[in-house]
Design a protein around this nucleic acid. Structure first.
Lengths: 244, 244
DNA sequence: ACCCGTGGTGATGTATACAAGATGGGCTCA
DNA sequence: TGAGCCCATCTTGTATACATCACCACGGGT
C-alpha cells in the first residue's frame, strides 16, 4: 500500500462515490453498477468494490439481497436518531474525560481551538464559515481524545461519519439565514461549558451538555428541510432524505 | 452473490479468520500474510481480503501503515471501555423504547424470552448454559428492536460485535465458578427490571439499568483474568488481552 | 569495526479473465 | 389476449496474473 498521502485507486473510488451520492447525482435507491462506475473513474473493479464495501459499512449504501448495492435513503427520523446517537457517544467521551481527568495540555489545546472559533465568528468582514467548520470538527475530535480512550476515539470518529450526523452536516447554506450566527454563538457557549465541566470533573454535566449540544444539529436539519430549493441544492446529501 | 444461506468463500474466510484469531492460534500483533492464509483456506485472495477488511472494521485486526494487517491486542481498559460503550448504546435504545413506547407484541416477546431464561437457569440437571447464552443474545437483540429505530438497531448490533464486548464474551468457562449461577440470576433480575421500566415509560431508569447491566461483563472479565490456565484456554480471545 | 548503498525477495495493491446466477424480454401455448 | 416459460444479456463473485513497493541481507567503502 502506498504509505502516506499518495492518492490510491481506492481513495479515488471512495471520493468519487461519496461525491456522486451526496451531490444527489444518483438518486436514492438506485442501483450502482460496478463496471459502469469503474469505467467512469478509470479504475478496475477491485478497488471500486472495496470502496463500496466501506460505504456500506458507513450506511451510505445498502447491499441488495441478490447482490450489488444501491444508494440508501433516509427519513428525517433516521437522521434524528443518528444525531441522538452521536450526542450519546460524544457525551460518554466527555463524561469519561471528566471522570478520569483530562491532561492540562489537552485542555489547553481545547481552549486554543475555542479561541479560534471565537475569532472565526467575529472575523472582520463577517463570519469565516470554512474556518468555523474546520475548527468545530477539530474540537469534536479533541473531545474524543480527552477521554483518553482509544476505543472511544474510534467510535466517536465512526458515529461522526454516520450519514448526515456529523457536527457540520447541515451547516452548509445556513449562512443565508439571518440568525444563523447567533445559533453558532449558542453552540460555542456550549463548547465553553463543556470544557469547563470536564475541567471541573463534573461528569454528569459534561455528558448532558454534549448530548444537548448534538441536538442543535436537529434544528439545523429542520431549518434546511423547510428551506427553499436554492438552499436544498447547497446541502450535500439532502436529496437522500425522504419526508417522514 | 449467492442469495441466502449458501456458504460463500467470503464466509469461509471470515469464519476461519475469526476462529484462528479468537482461539489464540495466531498471537497478538503478528502479521497475517494473505497468500499463506488463502492457501490454508483454499480460497483466493479476493474474498480473503474482503474478510480481512471486515475484521479491521470490527477492530479484531489492525491495518499496518505499510500495508497488510496484524492481529490486534487489547488491554483490560480497552475492553472495559468497549463494555461501557455497549452499555451506553443499549441504554439509549432502552431509553428510546421507553420514551417512544414499545409495541405490546414486542414487549410480550421480551417476556417470553425472559421466561425462557428462567427455565434455562432452573433446568433439570443444572444450568442449561448454551440455552442461556442464546436467549441472552436474543434478549439484547430484542432491546435494540424495541427502540423502533433502524439506526439504533444497527449500531447496537455493531457495538455488540466489538471484540470482547458482547454480552456473552466472558461467560464461557465460568460455569466452573461456584456462585456463577447466582450472578446470572442477578443479571436476569436486571432484565426484568429493564422491561418493566420500558413498559412504564421510565426512560431514565431504563437507560441507567441497561448501563449497569452491561457492567456485569466487567466482573466476568476480571473473574476470567484472575482465573487459572485451565480457564484461560476455554475463553475465546483471552489470549489477545495484555495486562494493563 | 561500522555505516551506507544496492539488489534480492516477498509482500500487497491493482487489473483482468472467467463462471455462476439474476433479470428482463420475447415467444409459445391455452 | 394473457400468462408462463425459456433464453440472451448483464451482473456480480471469484480466481489469477502482474506491477509496485517495503523489508532485509549482503558487500563495499571509510
Amino acid at each position: 500500500m502506498p504509505a502516506g498521502d499518495r492518492m490510491t485507486q481506492f481513495d479515488k473510488a471512495l471520493l468519487g462515490l461519496r461525491s456522486m451520492i451526496l451531490s444527489g447525482e444518483v438518486e436514492a435507491n438506485s442501483r450502482l453498477p460496478e463496471v459502469q462506475l469503474s469505467e467512469r473513474f478509470e479504475i478496475s473493479r477491485t478497488p471500486l468494490r472495496k470502496a463500496m464495501d466501506l460505504l456500506v459499512e458507513e450506511g451510505l449504501l445498502e447491499r441488495i439481497e441478490t447482490g450489488g448495492c444501491r444508494v440508501a435513503s433516509f427519513t428525517r427520523s433516521d437522521i434524528v436518531d443518528a444525531i441522538e446517537l452521536r450526542g450519546v457517544i460524544e457525551g460518554t467521551a466527555a463524561r469519561l474525560a471528566a471522570e478520569r481527568g483530562a491532561s492540562a495540555a489537552d485542555l489547553a489545546q481545547c481552549d486554543r481551538i475555542l479561541d479560534g472559533i471565537d475569532a472565526a465568528l467575529d472575523a472582520p468582514g463577517g463570519l469565516d464559515f470554512d474556518r468555523y467548520v474546520a475548527l468545530n470538527a477539530q474540537f469534536h475530535a479533541m473531545l474524543a481524545t480527552l477521554s483518553g480512550s482509544a476505543v472511544m476515539r474510534r467510535e466517536v470518529d465512526r458515529v461522526t461519519r454516520l450519514p448526515l450526523a456529523s457536527p457540520s452536516a447541515f451547516l452548509q447554506g445556513q449562512d443565508l439565514i439571518p440568525d444563523f450566527r447567533e445559533s453558532l454563538r449558542r453552540a460555542q457557549h456550549q463548547h465553553r461549558a463543556l470544557v469547563a465541566a470536564i475541567r471541573g470533573r463534573e461528569g454528569a454535566r459534561a455528558e448532558a451538555l454534549a448530548r444537548e449540544h448534538a441536538r442543535l444539529a436537529r434544528q439545523n436539519l429542520d431549518h434546511v428541510m423547510k428551506g427553499d430549493a436554492r438552499l436544498h441544492a447547497r446541502v450535500p446529501g439532502l436529496a437522500l432524505v425522504s419526508a417522514p
